[in-house]
Design a binder for these strands. Sequence first.
DNA 1: ACTATCTAACTAACCAGTTAATTAATAACA
DNA 2: TGTTATTAATTAACTGGTTAGTTAGATAGT
Lengths: 227, 227
Amino acid sequence: MKTVTFKPRLGSRGRPEQSRAAILQAAVREFAREGVAGARTDAIARTAKVNKALLYYYFKDKEALYGAVLDQVFGGLIASVGEVLSLDLPPREKILAYAGAHFDYVASHPLYPRIVQGEMMGAGRGSPKHLEGIVARYFRPLFGRVADVLKTGQKRGEFRQVDPLHFVPSMIAIIVFYFTSAPVMRLMTGKDPLSPALVAARRAAVLDFISAALFLRPNGKYRGARK
Amino acid sequence: MKTVTFKPRLGSRGRPEQSRAAILQAAVREFAREGVAGARTDAIARTAKVNKALLYYYFKDKEALYGAVLDQVFGGLIASVGEVLSLDLPPREKILAYAGAHFDYVASHPLYPRIVQGEMMGAGRGSPKHLEGIVARYFRPLFGRVADVLKTGQKRGEFRQVDPLHFVPSMIAIIVFYFTSAPVMRLMTGKDPLSPALVAARRAAVLDFISAALFLRPNGKYRGARK
DNA sequence: ACTATCTAACTAACCAGTTAATTAATAACA
DNA sequence: TGTTATTAATTAACTGGTTAGTTAGATAGT
C-alpha cells in the first residue's frame, strides 16, 4: 500500500489517481454483482461519481477495465497469501496458515470470489482472453508453492499421499464456495452468512475439514471437530 | 360414457413438444455458456433451429425460459441423487453413494454446474426471483436428507462430529468445483479435464477426500490415498 | 500557453419482445 | 367422401428501449 508518492502532477485539475481508483473500485462492485455481461458502464460511472467518458480515458474499453479488475483481485490475493507462504513454518502449520490467509482474504473482500468464479468459468466470449494470463501470472505460481508444502509434508510422513493436482483445487473449493453461494446460504439459514460470527464458524469448519482430510494422525493425537 | 378424448392433439403441424425440447436444450447451452445476462435469445433460437418468436410462444419471456432451465437442471439432479438416498445402506456407504451419484450427474452434464453456480451467486438482478423457489424445492430437501445420513453416522460412532451445515456445503463444493473451473484446469494441466480418464481420477480424489474428512478410523483401519 | 483531466451530448449497434400473417392437422358437417 | 371451419404451430419482419463507445469541447494546474 503506497500512498506517499510525490507525483509529477502535470497540468490538470482534480486528483487523477483518485478518479482512476474510484472507477476501479466501482468496477469491482459492478462486475462482481452483475457479471461481465451484466455489468453496465453507466452504473460504474455513476457509483464512481465520474463521467462515463472518463472510463474510456483511463481504460481502452469495458474489457480492459475488466482486466484491470481481475489484476487487482488476483494481485491482492497472491500478495496476501504469498506472504504466509514465505514464512518458515513446518508443513502442518504452513498449510493451515495458507488456508487461513486465503480464507481471510476472501472473507474481507466478499465480492472477489464472485469475480474469480465468473472468470474461472470463462463466462462469455468464446476465448477467455484474460484467463490465460491470470493462470500464468497468479494461479500457476500459487499452485506450485502450495504443492511444494504438500510434498514436504508427505516426505516427512505428516500428510496423507494425496495428489496435489486434486487436493489443491479441493482446498480452494472449500475455502471459496461458502462465499460464492452466500445468497443460497442466506436463504437456507435465514441468517446473514457474512456476519462475523458465521464467518468465524465457517473458517473453523474449513480448517478442520482440511486438517482431517490431509493430516495423518499416527495414534491418539486427536482433535475432533466441535459441534 | 367416457369419451376417451385424452390428448386432444388439436390441429397443428410439426412436432410441438419436440420444438419445445429443442428450445430448452439450446437454452441450457446458452445460459450455461454465457450466463443469464450474457445469453442471447437469438442465439438460442438459432441453435434450436426455430424462429425466435417461438421462444415467446412457449415461454413468457427470457426469465421464464431461464426458470424452466433451472427446473430441468435441478429436477434432474434430485431425481438422480434422491434415488441413492432412498437406498437402505449403512452411513458410510450411503454418503459415498450420494457423493458419487452427485458427481456422476454433474460429470455427465458438465454444463449444469455452471448454471447452478451462476444461480447460487444470484448473478444479476437485485432479487434472485427463482432462487427462493429453488432452495425450497430442491436444496432444502436435499440438505435434510444428507444431514440425516450424517447424523446417523455420528450416532453410530462412525463419523466425526462435524456440523452438517458446514460439511454438506463443503462436500458439494468439492464435487462441483472441478467442473465449474474446468477452463482453468484445462490451462493448468494442458489436458482436457473432461476426458473420461481425468474425470475418473477426479471422482476417486473427491471420494477419498470426503472419506478422510468424515470417517473415523478407530485404529489401524487405514486406506491411504493412492498417488 | 500548454496539456492532463474531465464532461455533456450524441451515435450506432444491439437485443428482448411484438405483430400480423401463414401453414397444416384435425374436426364438423354435408 | 370430400369440403370447409377451426385452431395449434410457426415464421418474417418490425419496434423501441438500452448500452458500449465517441466527439468536441471545457476546465484548471504548471
